[in-house]
């Protein structure tokens, strides 16, 4: 009995702190989402208004006026989805490349890992000024040298820019995890592949990829969880613009609190962000479990 007490003494502080700082505020957010509460109108009482905050975003009155929420939702899914796709496909190819025995390959691996640890606001500002800028950036200078007119990518292709930057930051993580998987494949398997005359393409897609599917799953899952909440990079590159064309859900929550001062609606959006995260994680998990079952 006495030892059991110490075990709870080890466990409880962490549980209490995590609950107070994360779960309890989330419950409050759920409650706030059912209130009419506008910070810029302190004269109005905070009243319960059921699902009005949700309906404000979700209700489609007519097909001509589809609420902005749907385009923001679509942008969030698009940015996250395309980034994850690029990261897993290109990341897998690069991991295969880095799996070779090359003199000093660790230096190359280390260099490629770098962007993952760069704070998103810094990478956004750096890319925006030294690469994408039409007069001072490399893109502008190279485009002019080639006789083309550089366009302001950040305003014309905001989603593309965000996807490129997200991919740049997250692909190193995919490479790291997939490379660990590739290096975990036993050497005698690779040798017997060669002896049996398996072609390179077959070896990669029929043997290596299925073997590291679990690593892929982990990378995609973590990438999804972290990408969906990304905020800083969007703020410093496109600031959600032009208009709301590169808003994502976290960015929309931020704008609802700090520009519209609408706590109720912001909370409803925040709850829907959590729901979206859970749905996507769940879908991903299931699809991959199914796939695994087929292979084993």
């Amino acid at each position: 009995m006495k030892t059991r007490k110490t075990e709870y003494r080890f466990l409880m502080p962490a549980i209490v702190v995590v609950a107070i700082m994360t779960q309890f505020p989330f419950l409050l957010t759920v409650i706030f989402s059912t209130l009419r509460w506008n910070l810029s109108r302190p004269d109005l009482p905070r009243t319960f208004n059921g699902f009005d905050n949700y309906l404000y975003f979700l209700k489609i009155e007519s097909l001509q006026h589809i609420p902005e929420f749907y385009s923001i939702l679509w942008q969030t899914v698009l940015i996250t989805g395309v980034t994850l796709l690029l990261c897993s496909v290109v990341g897998f190819i690069l991991a295969l490349l880095l799996d070779h025995e090359i003199p000093g390959v660790n230096i190359a691996r280390t260099l490629m890992l770098g962007p993952f640890f760069v704070m998103s606001t810094a990478s956004g500002v750096i890319w925006k000024t030294t690469i994408f800028n039409t007069t001072f950036g490399w893109y502008g200078v190279i485009a002019k040298a080639l006789g083309a007119t550089p366009v302001d990518l950040v305003s014309y292709h905001p989603i593309g820019v965000i996807i490129v930057l997200f991919t740049w930051q997250w692909m190193p993580f995919f490479i790291l995890v997939l490379l660990a998987g590739l290096q975990g494949i036993p050497q005698d398997l690779v040798d017997s592949m060669r002896i049996d005359g398996v072609s390179w393409l077959q070896g990669v897609f029929k043997i290596k990829l299925p073997l590291i599917m679990n690593h892929m799953r982990v990378a995609i899952m973590l990438g999804l969880v972290f990408l969906i909440k990304e905020f800083g990079l969007i703020l410093v590159t496109t600031a959600g613009g032009p208009g709301t064309r590169s808003y994502t859900l976290p960015y929309a929550v931020y704008m609802q609190v700090f520009s519209a001062n609408n706590v109720g609606r912001a909370s409803a959006l925040a709850v829907m962000t959590v729901v979206l995260t859970l749905i996507l994680v769940n879908l991903l998990y299931r699809s991959i479990v199914k796939r695994n079952a087929r292979y084993s």
Partner: peptide, 19 residues
Amino acid sequence: WFITTILLPPVAVLIPLFT
């Protein structure tokens, strides 16, 4: 339970913490 907490995006807690 600890693992699921990692899934929670910070927007989910921002508003109460801010107030």
